[in-house]
């Protein structure tokens, strides 16, 4: 489950960015502090990054740089919850979630006509999992309950959602990385969702 790492030198070579750019993005928070992993090597200390995440992030920064400013980008990548709220119809119209899943969510939650960012996020995650067939409806409700309180409890700090099933019984929990989990053989990890990644994905849809 551990991410593959890439050293700073390899990263600069691979992405063709300069030290100045890397440090600027770090300063702006475009590359999160906890992605800079210090490790001792035989040549001294070196900095490593989680390979897949940092490469995809840099790719996005490079591709978007031209149309939006760095400061606007910061908002996209920050795991802090936005003050965005959307009308229920808009959520379906803008293809953020399918109308079926939205209906399930509204039945469950019984909220009004406007969804705030956390609610959009919950239904967005639910949509992903139901569409992919990882969860059924009842399981989705359990997930929603966890998400609802979890996003408030973890407000602002990076966290992940773990979805598991044992003997057909579904359960899920949230944890803040870096963490490793170990479970018995009968338990199956269905999905491990990084909230920051989903938030980023959602924000791109909301722009």
């Amino acid at each position: 489950m551990e991410d593959e790492l890439i050293s700073k030198k390899e990263l600069l070579e691979h992405t063709n960015i300069s030290y100045g750019q890397l440090y600027r993005w770090k300063r702006k928070g475009l590359i999160p502090e906890d992605w800079f992993i210090k490790k001792s090597t035989y040549t001294g200390q070196e900095t490593f990054f989680p390979k897949d995440r940092v490469l995809s992030r840099i790719d996005k920064i490079k591709n978007m740089k031209e149309d939006i400013s760095l400061d606007e980008l910061v908002d996209v990548f920050s795991p802090v919850f936005d003050k965005i709220s959307l009308n229920v119809d808009e959520v379906a119209q803008r293809n953020i979630v399918t109308s079926e899943v939205l209906k399930i969510y509204l039945d469950f939650n019984g909220c009004g006509q406007v969804l705030d960012f956390n609610e959009i996020l919950s239904v967005f995650i639910l949509n992903k999992l139901i569409v992919s067939g990882d969860l059924n409806l009842d399981e989705g409700k359990i997930l929603l309950e966890v998400l609802q309180e979890g996003v408030i409890k973890f407000k602002g700090i990076p966290c992940e959602v773990f979805l598991m099933r044992k003997l057909g019984v579904f359960f899920c929990f949230m944890a803040s990385p870096p963490c490793r989990i170990y479970h018995d053989k009968g338990t199956r990890l269905i999905r491990r969702i990084n909230m920051a990644t989903v938030i980023e994905e959602l924000k791109l849809k909301l722009i």
């Binding site: 300069s18 100045g20 440090y23």
Partner: peptide, 19 residues
């Protein structure tokens, strides 16, 4: 010390990397 353009005087460092 890591940067794009580096000019040093009276500096003691283990590693200096730059363009």
């Amino acid at each position: 010390i890591e940067g794009d353009e580096i000019v040093l005087e009276n500096t003691i460092a283990k590693e200096v990397r730059g363009t």
